[in-house]
Design a protein around this nucleic acid. Structure first.
Lengths: 415, 415
DNA sequence: TCTATTTTTTTCGAGCCTCGAAAAAATACT
DNA sequence: AGTATTTTTTCGAGGCTCGAAAAAAATAGA
């Protein structure tokens, strides 16, 4: 049951408000913050002076701003990059990357590695993740003290508490509690997130005008993933990261899916499915482990050139995605969609059949208003989402409570 | 963007907390409220004495409780039934009902009417609703002053702001802003809700142990509806009431649905679909307008007796519901399900195929833990949900802000 | 150059709110 | 009747936000 609001919560919440206003706006003045938060100028003044004293915010040099206006010039506030740092780790098929991001959101260091995730043992997989994090933390340029959070995104299903990977297509291993492992290893709070959810988080930061309260990010890749934001909140399942759009049923008893079941959307629209149909193999043919981006590009080129099995394969993919989206729209109503991933570059081949299918569904009522955007490069998006998630945690959970709340009641405000 | 918390919000929220604790617990003592809200005894004491003085809560006579314990006996607090009243109006196929409910949740008056909703004009439909409400409000036994809210539930799609019916199977009319109409007519705040959503709200109140944070209520009736609670919140679409489970696509291009499209779950599992399949009509046959409960019972009886087309019809219904639920579970993960409505009495015929279908889907991973409950009578549930929704509004929007906030700053607390 | 004007930011006192401790109240036990 | 126990109220302290006024810092104009 929800809990009453205590008096100290008030300050904490309003501090969080101010911090997130600065994170969103970049360099807002105190007056602007007062306007967006609807708090009084006095309150904003008090809170921001605390935050500056604690080294969380900094004032922008007056000389850097040209006012052009009469009156006392506004002083911009910005996040102090040195206030903290976070690590964003992204684990996907045969690929592991880590980035160190400062409190202002800038990447200050990164490292990438190719792995053979499909054949690695459980311990090897964990070992690689731990090792890549350790190497970053041991970087002499980095003040390890300030690393406040590690966020790890993985292609696959995670649990709803953001602690563990439950299942993933990139490895036969299951139930790896990456968050707990990293936390134990380094003593830094860690979370484990689903890659598509992080894409959605990133899209919201990148283009808040288009991706605000309700939108869908679909990853078109070897498999099909989805990140969903509803009413401004990231949607997750009751037990897991949820939103397994790729495993909604398109045709009961239909094509064989990588997950072992039949008729999933992914079994028609995943790269392996497009490849399988383009090669005119049986729907029962075992899904191949990987199709290279180059090969997919060749398929798409061929499909654009002649009306052969390649074009039909993309048509089937569009149909599956369309009926899947139609069913999804029946539940949540239509919302803007971002198509992300290499196959988003072939969206021209997918879109006609997709729209035709949607038009045959309940969601198709507003099919005119449904708009698609494409973004072929998922990796930067996932990393960005990870970073923002970790930074938001630092904002809300570490800096918003304030020194006194964090340290118990060791000392009052610095005089 | 979210707004900062002001000082007066604090009291409002904590008052709301206390009121809802009393509504949930029935007759909690101040000590119990302090425990569930995590507020201090002093705060609870102050707030509850205000609420009693304002006539929102009442103390229970000490003589009515047997303490058996040492120490000062607890004094139970309860909602004052006379603090307010609400109207719950339910409009379904050929049927209109209204109930007057006091602030403590007891039905104090009701009226029901048979109508021919399918053939009525727009004005007739509106007129009947207005008239039935007017008759209740003109009841001399009722203190009209105290009617604080009207909640109207309809079988069909409503908009996400709870103002209007957008589309309904019970009438050819569309876009009727019932909430605005009633509000204008009687000067009482009104809301328009989806019937299945109200079922879900009611289930949560009836059995909070089973239906707490995540669950699904499915209406098996002429059509198929769903109410969904996720993370303790009623799920709605981005534009409409959403959750149109019945119009998720079961088989692309499949059986003709009442909505005019093809392959919807409802086109296999709605009463008209079961009837159509049992009569061995074509899947393209126009859905009949209504099948009587008696006729459905006869079909079910026949299906139980011999393995003929009737049994096959129920099997197909189960399969459609199963694959639909499977797709839903792919998105939200499994959750307890309540099957509501007359056809829930035939769930024994539906369940085997349903479970078999779910097992073939991504949601089937935990298929053992998926449990179904049946409740054949939807009407009381819908009315109960309506009433609770209206009462919650009174709690949160009228009583929580308090007299001074409501009346501007006309007077301070009564001395 | 100096003064008036404008806008931003800080300061200060007032008014609430919650909290903890202690007191008061109301019952059962001995 | 007196004591122990539990619930509820009272009271002062400490925080927080707010509005008004003051201070600060620039531009515009004379």
């Amino acid at each position: 049951m929800s809990v009453g609001i205590r008096h100290d919560d008030l300050r904490r919440r309003n501090r969080a408000m101010v911090i997130s206003a600065v994170r969103r706006a970049g360099q807002p003045s105190r007056t602007e913050i007062a306007a967006t938060t609807a708090l009084s100028h006095s309150t904003i003044s008090a809170i921001s002076s605390d935050l500056i004293q604690e080294g969380i915010l900094t004032e922008i040099k007056a000389s850097e701003t040209v006012s052009m206006k009469r009156g006392r010039p506004q002083v911009g506030l910005s996040l102090n990059p040195e206030a903290a740092a976070v690590l964003a780790v992204v684990l996907s098929l045969n690929f592991l990357s880590v980035a160190v991001i400062d409190y202002a959101g800038q990447v200050v260091a990164e490292e990438q590695r190719r792995l053979d995730t499909l054949t690695m043992s459980r311990d090897e997989l964990i070992g690689e993740c731990v090792a890549i994090v350790r190497r970053r933390l041991e970087d002499p340029d980095l003040d390890v003290q300030s690393v406040a959070r590690i966020a790890l995104a993985i292609q696959g299903i995670t649990d709803s508490h953001a602690r563990a990977m439950l299942w993933s297509p990139i490895t036969p291993q299951t139930n790896i509690a990456f968050a707990d492992i990293l936390e134990r290893e380094f003593g830094i709070p860690a979370i484990m997130e689903n890659d598509c959810n992080m894409m959605a988080v990133a899209l919201r930061w990148r283009d808040p005008d288009r991706y605000r309260d309700d939108f869908i990010a679909i990853l078109l890749s070897h498999g099909i993933g989805m990140g969903l934001v509803l009413k401004g909140e990231l949607f997750t399942g009751t037990h897991s990261s949820g939103g397994e759009f790729g495993h909604m049923i398109h045709r009961p008893g239909g094509a064989l899916c990588r997950c072992g079941r039949r008729g999933c959307v992914e079994a028609y629209a995943g790269n392996y499915a497009i490849w399988r149909n383009a090669r005119q193999l049986s729907e029962n043919a075992e899904p191949v482990a990987d199709v290279s981006d180059a090969e997919m590009r060749a398929l798409a080129a061929q499909a654009r050139q002649t009306d052969g099995p390649e074009r039909e394969a993309y048509r089937k993919a569009g149909e599956a995605l369309g009926f899947g989206l139609g069913s999804l729209f029946a539940l949540i109503d239509p919302a803007p969609v971002a198509m992300v991933g290499a196959s988003a570059a072939a969206f021209d081949l997918i879109e006609p059949a997709l729209r035709e299918a949607i038009a045959q569904t309940a969601g198709g009522q507003h099919s005119g208003s449904i708009s698609f955007d494409t973004e072929p490069n998922e990796l930067p998006l996932i990393r960005e989402g990870c970073a923002m998630r970790a930074l938001s945690f630092v904002d809300q959970e570490i800096f918003a409570p304030g020194i006194q709340a964090r340290a118990g009641s060791v000392g009052k405000n610095v005089a």
